[in-house]
Simulated scan of single mutants.
Amino acid sequence: MKNRIRVLHVAQAAGGVDRYIRMLFKYMDHDKFENILVCSHDFKRVDYNGLADAFEHVDMQRPIGKADIDAMKAVRRLIRKYQPDIVYAHSSKAGAIARVANIGLKKNGDKIKCIYNPHGWAFNMRCGKKKQMIYTAIEKMAAPFCDKIICISEAEKQSALDKKICKQDKLQVIVNGIDIEEYEQRKIAGLSTVSRKSCGIPESAFVVGMVGRISEQKAPDVFIKAAKQIKQKISEACFMIVGDGPDREMIEEYARENNIALFISGWVENASDYISLFDVALLLSRWEGFGLAIPEYMLAGKPVVVSRVDAIPEIVKDTENGLLVKPDDIDGTSNAVLELYKEGALQMKLRNKGMITVHEKFDVKRTAKESEMLLNSVITSRNQLR
């Protein structure tokens, strides 16, 4: 294939970024774009068979340290090797490494363009003011070394403007999406091997679930404390967390001490199969760049209870397609779940409206198409400068 736009993607953090890149590669036009992935060892080569035109591992570590210099040198060598038209950096760490690595590099006499997608600003995390200041300073210093910054929600764009990361014209909102087509094909084919029985959950149980890393951001402590209150009112309630993380042991211990029926799946590839077992789906994040689990819940026809933070109210309109609660609000969370348990008509309304919302707004095919348009515009702007 001739004259394809060659894009070299650089990524350090796996998880949601990994899923995003795979969906992007799947739905981008392969006749027009050549996608090369340079990534940390958290990514698996086998996952990109048939998706990536080339795949390279580089030792990129999450903590800031001397190893970053070696990572920058390695990425710079690979940029020189592949001679891309555009370097596309994903997430904060890879964003810093790739943007510095690309400084001064050219292809056929033209500057190699660079775009950056933070996938959620690091300075929005709930951490100390000193760390927030450091993350903000890094983003400000690195911003001049890219041509466009992609924000996955309007809230992310506003955060960048509030922190004066860059001028508004450098920011481009491309809202996140999920793979609706894959979900529907999997459902029709009946590929799921997950059942309530296989998870040790009674068929008659009222299942309250969440998908996400068991860590401070996703507030599993609020989830399990709300579970205690819910269990007191709904005797048949059982609880499920699809994911894993550093706070797992603490959450399991609390569940044992309070006689809460809790199933934790660990890391799985087929989260949608577990979501199908939920009666109510929760995402109680303390900060959130987007909240990809929410449209996944909606696609499965589950009523949602979610925290009112960052980008989440862009997805969920309270009492229209879900219920919003304040972050860290244990009572509000348990009351919202109890309301859904009692009000079948409300459940049905939220399910129906949620499914309409995800089909209208959050299909990853739209995300891929808008990404293609941005990549084309970046190349066009370069050609106009010749």
Rank of each mutant, 00 (worst) to 15 (best):
N3G: 09
I5T: 15
Y20N: 05
R22D: 04
R22P: 02
L24D: 02
F25P: 02
D31R: 14
N35S: 14
V38E: 07
H41I: 13
K44Y: 13
R45E: 15
N49R: 12
N49M: 12
D53K: 03
A54Q: 06
M60Q: 08
G65Q: 01
D68T: 08
I69L: 14
A71L: 07
A71V: 07
A74V: 02
A74Y: 01
A74M: 02
A74H: 06
R80M: 13
K81V: 05
P84R: 05
D85T: 04
G95D: 03
A96H: 03
A101H: 05
K106Q: 06
K106W: 00
K107I: 04
K107T: 03
D110G: 02
C114I: 12
C114W: 01
N117M: 15
G120D: 04
G120E: 01
A122S: 15
N124W: 10
T136Y: 09
E139F: 11
E139S: 10
A143G: 07
K148P: 03
I152D: 07
E154G: 11
E154S: 05
Q158G: 00
S159G: 06
A160N: 02
A160T: 02
K164D: 12
Q168G: 09
G177M: 09
I180F: 03
Y183E: 07
Q185R: 14
T193G: 04
T193N: 12
V194H: 06
S195Q: 14
R196Q: 08
K197R: 06
S198R: 13
S198P: 11
I201G: 03
E203T: 07
S204I: 03
V207C: 09
M210A: 14
I214M: 14
A219G: 00
A219T: 00
P220N: 04
V222D: 09
A227F: 04
A227G: 01
Q232V: 00
K233L: 05
A237L: 08
M240S: 09
V242R: 03
G243C: 12
P246N: 13
M250Y: 15
E253L: 15
A255E: 09
F263G: 01
V268E: 04
N270S: 05
S272M: 15
D279V: 09
A281N: 02
A281E: 06
L283W: 00
E288H: 00
G289V: 02
L292Y: 05
P295D: 13
E296T: 11
L299H: 10
K302S: 06
K302D: 08
S307R: 01
D310Y: 03
D310E: 13
A311H: 01
V316N: 04
V316S: 02
K317N: 04
D318Q: 08
G322H: 09
P327K: 14
P327F: 02
D328L: 08
D328F: 13
I330Q: 02
T333M: 12
A345T: 15
K349T: 11
K349C: 10
K353M: 10
T357C: 12
K361R: 14
D363W: 04
R366P: 01
A368Y: 08
